[in-house]
């Protein structure tokens, strides 16, 4: 029982990070129908920028409170990623907005490689140790189930950020403009929405979320690396598809479900298959679930409003 609870905790933590990254994929897809494969790299840039800021802060103000340092690092990483997101859209994707769908997709993959290589040139090839400023000493809320303060922070921050985003999209004028652009950007433009600005803003918001996810990811595992964004990016993309790409609630649900499926899958796959399969099939397990969901619900768990888009 403790083991199952522990696996659920593990899954929730990983799932929260997936969900946060998946939001970036799904927002861009919802508005443009583009899968921005370089989104995982924005996560990496966020983590490494925060790392750079932390190292600088430790040099000039070693006595500053650790949490304040981390807050400053996040506040530096977010605008850097926002500028990066803006530039990506402006320079790489805007010109291709009316091109066949394959062209921006391939551009996005190219952008992913480009960012990884640039990061490798700037930060080098080595793994960097990311200072764990939030404690990683385990607590036991239930005897036998361990959770660390940094993991609690991850789940809470993710939940808050996601709630904020939903409020933004559903309750504000800006959110209405975003939804209108998603539905049909030509008509939205006729109604006086500056669709270019809205699309740019979508990239910027997604990048800010990615920066937060990057810092949380690096704080949890204590490492940062120029290729660290690739796997979480891929998993988050899977989560977005699982939940229903283009759907904000779906991205969150997909992230959490994927995290749980992975953790519980890795823990019990061997028992469930009587030793036939083992934990090396951890990832396959997640993709099998994805396959099954897509067979019965081709638009994902919560579904995309496909008919509206057409």
């Amino acid at each position: 029982m403790e083991t199952l609870l522990q696996q659920i905790v593990n899954g929730l933590v990983v799932g929260s990070v997936y969900a946060l990254v998946a939001l970036g994929y799904t927002m861009v897809y919802g508005i443009l129908g583009l899968i921005n494969f370089a989104h995982g790299e924005v996560v990496m840039v966020g983590a490494l920028t925060a790392l750079q800021t932390l190292l600088l802060l430790m040099g000039i103000a070693p006595d500053m409170a650790p949490l304040l340092k981390l807050a400053i690092a996040v506040l530096v990483a977010m605008p850097v990623c926002m500028i990066l997101g803006f530039l990506m859209e402006r320079l790489a994707y805007r010109k291709l907005r009316n091109a066949p769908r394959l062209a921006p997709l391939i551009t996005a993959i190219g952008m992913s490689f480009l960012l990884q290589t640039l990061a490798m040139i700037i930060w080098g090839r080595n793994y960097h140790t990311f200072p764990q400023l939030i404690s990683t000493d385990p607590m036991q809320p239930i005897p036998g189930v361990f959770i660390t303060p940094v993991q609690v922070t991850i789940v809470i921050v993710s939940a808050l950020v996601m709630a904020g985003l939903i409020l933004l999209v559903t309750k504000t004028r800006l959110g209405r403009a975003m939804r209108a652009t998603a539905e049909n950007h030509r008509v939205a433009a006729l109604m006086g929405v500056d669709t270019n600005a809205i699309i740019a803003l979508t990239f910027v918001i997604g990048a800010a979320l990615a920066a937060v996810a990057g810092v949380m990811f690096a704080s949890n595992y204590g490492i940062a690396h120029y290729a660290m964004g690739f796997m979480p990016g891929l998993k988050a993309f899977t989560a977005a598809v699982l939940g229903g790409i283009g759907n904000l609630g779906g991205a969150m649900l997909g992230g959490i479900v994927l995290g749980l499926v992975e953790a519980v899958g890795a823990g019990y796959i061997e028992t469930m298959t009587f030793g036939f399969l083992n934990s090396s099939y951890q990832d396959i397990f997640a993709f099998v679930i994805l396959g099954i969901v897509l067979i019965f619900r081709p638009t994902g768990l919560l579904g995309e409003r496909v008919s509206d888009r057409a």
Partner: peptide, 19 residues
């Protein structure tokens, strides 16, 4: 247990081992 050479999260397999 098994992982891969790109993984960073081992919580699931370590939890299983802990048991």
């Amino acid at each position: 247990e098994f992982t891969n050479d790109k993984a960073t999260d081992f919580m699931a397999i370590l939890t299983k081992i802990k048991a």
